[in-house]
Design a protein around this nucleic acid. Structure first.
Lengths: 195, 195
DNA sequence: CCTAGAATGTAGGCGTTGACTATTTAATAG
DNA sequence: CTATTAAATAGTCAACGCCTACATTCTAGG
């Protein structure tokens, strides 16, 4: 049984290996040729699935957004009060960011393909989920601003932890403080009633 | 007058050219050899000043923190009320981040040299300034938590703008909302009295 | 079934890069 | 003036991304 000429699902294998390598070596350590080596194919093979290195990175970022969205959705399913759910979502977001620091860098790198494209769409889906899950009252403007404020806070917390300005333990306190501040603010009291 | 063998201040020239290139091409477009070319020296010359590419990037990050610190200090000098100063600092921070998106990526990249080192020290100076400037009352714990919360919020806002999830105009509103939420929170009322 | 064409993978080459080393040149201290 | 050190040169090397020509496999339409 010789190795089939066609790999079969090279694209998936490459993406998974790339995530492993990304975690181990960071973005810089992610080489197409090494990836091909690990998959047991020739160095040109990845080109059939990713036109260039950036295309691979974009695909990784897209998957990252999808996985983060899943985590957020799971947190939103919690049966607790709105107040508690908000905290859970915040923690889930930050936890994902801590576990996938290099991936998050990719996801929020400004050069992920232009204003449109799959990456931005995946990011959009994340924000849509956050939007729908966090606020079912209040006007659109208030809701939009609350959503952005939430996103900024959790994203900033994640960045501070990744940059080692904050330990993961401090991060827990930080995210709790942040959610508290969010709820106590005027925007919070309009969007999430009952605190 | 032949060109002197010794450049004289090659290190400074390289750093300044690197910032230009960083702004124009992003981190990936920053090549040591191209830098040497632009400075009119041989391709090995930069090695006398930066042992490898990462050392150059670290130096850039360090300077970035210093410049950001300057901007924050300037904002802190505003004679207005604490409430207004907080907003100014937040806006200054975000404005710097927007104007120097690629540099900010460098500054907060997790692989900027380990737990110690010049980059972390420069980052520490920034946080020290924020700490001293934003709160002269309240206990150390509360102050520390308020400081982190502030940093996370502005940093997250900056990231969202850089990732084009938020337009610069939305960013203005966002930072105002954020500062308001910060002040309204329990931490805020302990740290910054009088609102 | 079988054949044309599209996908997929191979093989090799090209130019660029970061890193390393030996060597030359300039600046400086004694 | 000379010995030492710092700074820059020039050349080499392996690795990489990208490109092209070609081989193999898969897939539909007739």
């Amino acid at each position: 049984m010789r190795r089939p000429f066609h790999h079969g699902n090279l694209r998936e294998v490459l993406l998974e290996q790339a995530e492993v390598m990304l975690r181990a070596e960071g973005v810089d350590g992610l080489s197409l040729r090494e990836l091909a080596r690990q998959a047991g194919v020739s160095h040109g093979a990845p080109r059939s699935h990713f036109i260039d290195r950036q295309a691979l990175l974009d695909a990784l970022a897209e998957r990252g957004f999808d996985r983060l969205t899943e985590r957020v959705v799971a947190a939103l399913r919690d049966p607790g009060l709105d107040r508690e759910r908000l905290r859970l979502v915040g923690r889930a977001y930050v936890a994902f960011a801590v576990e996938n620091a290099a991936l998050m860098e990719l996801m929020f790198a400004s050069k992920s393909n232009g204003p449109a494209g799959p990456v931005q769409e995946a990011a959009g889906r994340l924000f849509t989920v956050l939007d729908g899950g966090l606020a079912d009252s209040a006007g659109d403007d208030t809701r939009e601003r609350f959503k952005l404020l939430f996103a900024a806070t959790v994203q900033g917390t994640a960045t501070l932890i990744a940059a080692q300005r904050v330990t993961p333990e401090q991060g827990e306190t930080l995210i709790d403080d942040a959610m508290e501040a969010l709820l106590t603010s005027a925007l919070g009291s309009q969007v999430l009633p009952g605190h």
